[in-house]
């Protein structure tokens, strides 16, 4: 079933009072400010609840400091809000797990996500943190599509997956950093074993 046919929660525009249609100000962790329409904010469950709880008036929005989003940078937040503005008023898909989800990436989203992998992963983090269901759907689909026609070695590069050897090395380094004496004891134990001893003590 396509996303368009999936069960949806309708966004009832008629129920939104005219006087509440305003632009909120948000600030990223690198102090970049964004103005986002109230309708666009509804795509994010997290932000929508936040602004509802704050109960800002139009004056508050202008006079009070911008709402800080401390764990998302400006570059990522710009993409998030571009996406929200483009899709404002659209129904939010509900995933009840009853049908396999088939996600199609619209042209606008494909262009928006034509970015390097690092930024794409930040976008996914942001979509998850801000609970933007459809943005998370399409960005996860984009990441899944990256596996197409890739060997395991290529997948390791695409998804930045350490090999078993790298994982082992990192684990050893972490252990040594935590307790250098433990490593010395382990080496001493190994040396004694090589010399034929069957007991450390």
């Amino acid at each position: 079933m396509s996303v368009e046919n999936a069960p949806v929660v309708d966004v009832d525009e008629a129920a939104i009072p005219v006087e509440k249609k305003m632009y909120y100000r948000f600030e990223s962790n690198d102090k970049k400010e964004f103005r986002v329409s109230e309708l666009a904010i509804q795509q994010s469950e997290t932000l929508n609840r936040l602004v509802e709880a704050m109960g800002y008036t139009s004056e508050d929005v202008e006079n009070k400091p911008a709402i800080a989003i401390e764990n998302i940078d400006g570059k990522t937040l710009k993409l998030v809000f571009q996406w929200c503005e483009h899709h404002k008023g659209e129904a939010i898909p509900v995933d009840d797990g009853s049908v396999p989800k088939i996600v199609e990436i619209p042209e606008f989203d494909a262009k928006l996500m034509d970015i390097d992998n690092g930024l794409l992963f930040k976008l996914i983090w942001a979509a998850d943190y801000l609970n933007i269901v459809q943005l998370l759907n399409v960005s996860c689909k984009k990441v899944a599509n990256m596996a197409q026609g890739k060997t395991p070695a290529q997948l390791r590069r695409v998804y930045l997956l350490p090999s078993d050897e790298e994982d082992e090395a990192a684990k050893r380094a972490a252990q040594e950093a935590q307790d250098p004496r433990a490593r010395e004891v382990e080496e001493e134990f190994e040396e004694r074993k090589r010399q034929g001893g069957n007991s450390f003590f």
């Binding site: 396999p100 996600v103 996860c140 899944a144 060997t151 395991p152």
Partner: peptide, 21 residues
């Protein structure tokens, strides 16, 4: 969510990447 979108062979190849995957 990402893993669910993978084809079976992609899922298999991902599992071959490392013990952690």
């Amino acid at each position: 969510q990402i893993i669910k979108q993978l084809e079976l062979y992609e899922y298999f190849f991902l599992g071959l990447c490392s013990k952690r995957t």
